[in-house]
Amino acid sequence: MNKKILVIEDDRSILDALKLTLEYAGYDATLADNGEYIERLKKHSKEELPDIIILDILLSGKDGRAICKALKADPATAHIPVIMISAHPRAEKSVKEAGADDFLAKPFNIPDLLALLKKHSH
């Protein structure tokens, strides 16, 4: 079964490009353009939860780092690897502090993204 990737990113164009990339690489991609989606995860059964979350920092009204902290604080979602992405090239320190497993600065190379997904796929 394909691994499920949840992408939370407020820019539609980046979301579309990520969907193409992820599906081409054999992943199932679920897209959300705002941070509210994270509330829905609580209703998901364990099987329905994503295997990896790709999370942007600035989400038009929500800070991805706060979402990451909440995900990592909830026993139901704490195990899901979170890869945070941002146009701020120096955001690595702050996302790691928020509990993110990895960071990728925008714009990134697709092979770098796929390598991180592979790393967290086990």
Partner: peptide, 13 residues
């Protein structure tokens, strides 16, 4: 950087 990011991804795809 936002349009640059998607531009770069589409180019690679």
């Amino acid at each position: 950087k936002t349009p640059i990011t998607s531009l770069k991804m589409y180019g690679q795809i």
